[in-house]
Amino acid sequence: MNNLTHLDTNGDISMVDVSTKTATTRTATATGQVIFPADIYTAIKNADGMTKKGSITQTAHIAGVMASKRTHELIPLCHQIPLDGVKISFDYGDSHHAITVTATAKVNHKTGVEMEALTAVSVACLTIYDMSKALSHDIVISDIKLLTKTGGKSDYANQ
């Protein structure tokens, strides 16, 4: 378990000490999907994402950005970091009746932003579910994952 950064040598939970690290520009991009029954997907797309509650993607965009800024309050051992930017996009996928959410978080700091990007995607997907659940409960949130990260000790790209 020595490779797990949130455990000390005794196996006790420990927040990583980043005080001696150098601040670098770090980015992370994550993605996830909200998959709908075909008829519900078509209705949402034909309405440009508008429901009685308002715009699905505009609301999810705001929710994702807000969530990324509060990641440290949700994930116990995450550092509070001063995000420089969060970009979120939504793509309709006709072949699989899904809205794909992609979020990129950026910071110049001593620790990475993977959790902020993943949190943005997760909450945006949950918001899409919430905004459309009156149409159907047969909605699946799927494939939330980290795509890339840059900065820090190493870069990463999901193959």
Rank of each mutant, 00 (worst) to 15 (best):
A117E: 14
L74Q: 13
R26M: 11
D48Y: 12
A30T: 04
G151T: 14
I88D: 03
V123M: 04
K69R: 07
I128Y: 09
I56W: 02
L146V: 02
A28R: 06
I75V: 15
M1N: 13
T119H: 01
V34F: 06
T5N: 12
S142N: 15
G54L: 10
R70S: 11
T31C: 08
A30D: 05
P37Y: 08
M66Q: 14
K133Q: 08
A157C: 13
F90Q: 04
V34D: 05
A23T: 09
Q33I: 09
L135R: 02
G85T: 03
Q80I: 09
M66I: 09
L77A: 12
M115L: 08
N2I: 11
G151E: 13
A124Q: 06
V107W: 06
A63Q: 12
I144E: 01
I81V: 14
V18D: 05
G64D: 09
E116V: 03
T59G: 03
K133D: 10
D84T: 14
M131R: 12
F90M: 05
S95K: 11
N46M: 10
D17N: 13
T29S: 07
L83S: 06
G32H: 02
T119L: 04
S154H: 14
V101Y: 01
F36S: 09
L146Y: 03
T102M: 08
